[in-house]
Computed example of a mutant assay.
Amino acid sequence: MNLPPDSEVRRVRAHGLVQGVGFRESCVAYARANGVAGWVRNRGDGSVEAMLQGPPALLDRMCDWLRHEVPGARVDALDVRPEAAPVEPSSGFERRPTL
Rank of each mutant, 00 (worst) to 15 (best):
E49N: 07
A57K: 13
A29R: 15
E69Q: 11
M51G: 15
F23E: 00
Q53R: 08
Q53A: 13
V36E: 02
G72E: 01
F23H: 00
L3D: 06
L58A: 09
P71R: 11
M1N: 12
D6L: 08
V40K: 10
Q53W: 00
A77Q: 14
L52G: 14
V21P: 03
P71Q: 14
E83N: 04
P4Q: 10
V87S: 11
D76K: 05
R13P: 05
P55N: 12
V70E: 03
H68G: 15
A37R: 09
P97Y: 04
S26H: 09
P4I: 11
G54Y: 00
S26F: 11
E94C: 13
L58Q: 06
E8D: 05
R11E: 13
F23P: 01
L66K: 02
H15A: 10
F93Q: 12
R32M: 04
L17A: 08
V70A: 10
P5S: 12
V75G: 04
P71K: 14
V87T: 09
H15K: 06
N42K: 02
R43A: 14
M1Y: 06
P71T: 05
D79M: 06
R67T: 04
S26C: 03
D64P: 00
R13H: 11
D45L: 07
S91Q: 11
A73N: 00
M51W: 09
D45A: 12
W39T: 10
D79W: 05
R61V: 03
A31T: 02
P5C: 13
V48I: 09
R11T: 11
A37D: 02
G54H: 01
G72L: 01
E94A: 15
C63H: 02
V28H: 06
A31F: 06
V87C: 07
V18G: 06
A37Y: 01
A50N: 01
W65V: 11
G54K: 00
L66V: 02
R24E: 09
P82Y: 06
D79Y: 01
E94Q: 11
R24A: 08
P97M: 05
N34A: 07
H68Q: 07
R67I: 05
P55E: 10
P86L: 05
N42L: 11
G16N: 02
D64A: 15
V28A: 14
D76F: 00
L3N: 10
R43F: 04
V12M: 07
E25H: 15
E94V: 14
E49A: 10
L58E: 03
N34K: 08
P89G: 02
A57N: 03
H15S: 13
V70I: 13
G44W: 13
N2K: 08
P82W: 00
V80H: 06
E69S: 08
P86Y: 02
G35M: 04
A29L: 15
D60E: 14
S91E: 15
L52I: 11
S47A: 14
H68D: 14
